[in-house]
Write a protein that binds this DNA or RNA. Structure first.
Lengths: 349, 349
DNA sequence: GCGCTCTGATTAATCGTTTAAGCAAAGCCT
DNA sequence: AGGCTTTGCTTAAACGATTAATCAGAGCGC
């Protein structure tokens, strides 16, 4: 027994008005040749019957499902709410639904997750890769959101520029010795952010990078970063490559009795949910996720419309980098005398 | 021009083996009457051709899309990554895809988001409501994940028990004056958690609740909570109803020079991503989101299979509450002499 | 008047799958 | 041997939309 959906379909509208289904279809889509008044009448009738087209029927005929896949190999990413929200909004504005797929952090199951999406015949995919995983060619157009230096990247925040602005902000406050705190050296995003920060160093300044995952391989997850020692070595600013690491630095420094921002400054990236409400609130770089999502989705829908896309084509966008915005809050301040009593004195920068 | 999908379909397999499509369909689904050896042969051939069934064709015929909708009116919820991951995992194990819908926090557009899902003919929906929004009947089975006291709730963590365990933990450590920190008084979840904590109070103990959103209506977003004053009033434990509020309390107390856990204890809920890595790491209650998702999805798929579900039926599960687990970390400790020097002395519990 | 175009509709095929119904052959019982 | 069930497969009809092809009629120029 073929289950018929509750709502009305094209043929019900057609028989009800005494016309053919083709005419109804044409009237609603505005494609064929239908007289103006008949179009009017059909649309009116369809509206009052509460007609909603069956995506299944349409998909079967056109070969398009009207659904985009969102692949997040690192779904535990705290940015996920913002990403998902932005993509869903942009996609639904373009008439698409969003199907999520997750590989639970395991890189091996990433292809499996992609396959699940292909089986559901998504029209395109947006992939936010973890680390530098090569995206194997899939059976549909693919947009990649990572960072400009990732090969095949479609659109992303300008992480390099973001790093540069953080550096300019800190140097403008008088800081000369900056500790960059990252999580993982293999992350293209974190590398670009760190590169941007280093590009802002002026002569006589010093930047050093601390990679947390290396530390944790020895000390275990959640181990101390030894930041108090770094303060004693003369570092006055701690530029984390993500707000998660900034938060970690902030609490560790506070626990060691170091005051922020009077003693040292702490900055982050991404403007995550806790950043405005911790004490002191975090100075950070915000990415315009809405705009990035919009660009990615429109690049994807363009590729879907013009069917020139060969299988597994990575789509490109005219705008590949979206500027990040500096959000100055309480955790960064002038490099003043407050730090003096904590320093050994030999590093004066 | 009807676009044919790249892969093979049933009829290609059928002609290639000289049988009918019906037989192929039956062989693959194991439904009709097909001889054992022919089943073997067909499945083998299908596998080597890399056959994947068209969801569109199947959906059209069966009236089922094989997709569940996930509605999160409060998508900014920091729990979202865990929720989405758990639901996606449970759904894909049951052979379903997950379509997300978001109402951007706006309660008015919640119905619109639900409608988008209905248009894409999802077979069922999982709704995680914000506040106490009544779920209006939709055109498919609906599972609600909130808390036991929400009418129509399908399955949820046992927030009351979680609160009770936090209370027992803190009283066991000798705390007698506990400040409960919540965000919003209208949240069923937060109310249940607070209720659980209060239920654990023994004679002579005192619990008070601080609602942040009320404070912020006057003081603005991110305003101080005045916790140092509370410490002076004799509170030795701060039990936040979410790790986000716990983090806020933790940093504010640290900034005021109050040491955790030697001076006061701080606990949270949900075991969010930062909880293990801040200093001191957060004692918190973890919910078994995987199990909750599994129960919700199986309740939903059961309702879908047995089509007795009238439109808009809220499904129920045999197990409505899933126990929470106490995670003891560094932010809670004995109510000892460390607090003495900060207290006025009149409240000794 | 004849042929031409243009308009406004219909007819029918098609996408890929599921499934009820039909049918031939074989096996079994009395 | 005749009637019965069982087995193993095929036929065909859907599901709901899109769209190429067709067709009837009107308008019009020469």
């Amino acid at each position: 027994m073929p289950q018929s959906r509750p709502g009305p379909n094209l043929s019900r509208i057609a028989t009800s008005l005494g016309v053919s289904v083709a005419t109804v279809s044409n009237a609603l889509s505005g494609k064929g040749r239908v007289s103006g008044q008949l179009i009017e009448k059909i649309r009116e009738h369809a509206a009052e019957l509460g007609y909603v087209p069956s995506q299944a029927g349409r998909a079967l005929r056109t070969g398009r499902s009207g659904v985009l896949g969102l692949v997040l190999p690192d779904i535990a990413n705290p940015l996920f709410p913002k990403i998902a929200q932005a993509i869903e909004f942009a996609a639904s504005a373009a008439g698409y639904g969003v199907l999520i797929a997750d590989s639970r952090g395991d890189a091996a199951t990433q292809t499996e997750a992609i396959n699940r999406l292909v089986e559901r015949s998504v029209d395109g995919m947006i992939i936010i890769p973890r680390r530098a995983t090569r995206i194997s060619a899939a059976a549909c157009p693919v947009a990649v959101i990572d960072t400009a230096s990732t090969p095949g990247n479609t659109v992303a925040a300008d992480h390099w520029q973001g790093g540069r602005e953080i550096a300019d902000h800190l140097t403008g406050l008088g800081h000369r010795r900056i500790l960059i705190i990252g999580n993982n050296q293999e992350s293209n995003v974190q590398n670009d952010r760190a590169g941007g920060i280093r590009s802002g160093m002026r002569p006589g300044m010093h930047a050093e990078t601390l990679w947390i995952d290396r530390l944790e391989q020895a000390g275990g997850i959640g181990c101390p970063l030894g930041l108090a020692e770094k303060v004693r070595q003369g570092f006055t600013a701690f530029a984390a490559l993500s707000d998660l690491q900034a938060l970690r630095a902030l609490t560790e420094l506070q626990q060691a009795g170091i005051n922020i921002p009077t003693d040292v400054s702490v900055t982050g990236f991404d403007d995550l949910i806790w950043s405005p409400v911790v004490t002191p609130s975090l100075t950070t770089m915000r990415m315009d996720m809405d705009r990035i999502a919009e660009i990615a989705v429109s690049a994807l829908t363009d590729a879907i419309k013009t069917r020139v896309t060969r299988e597994g084509m990575l789509v490109t966008a005219e705008t590949g980098r979206v500027a990040m915005q500096l959000i100055v809050r309480q955790s960064s301040g002038p490099c003043g005398p407050g730090t003096k009593n904590l320093r050994d004195g030999e590093h004066v920068g």
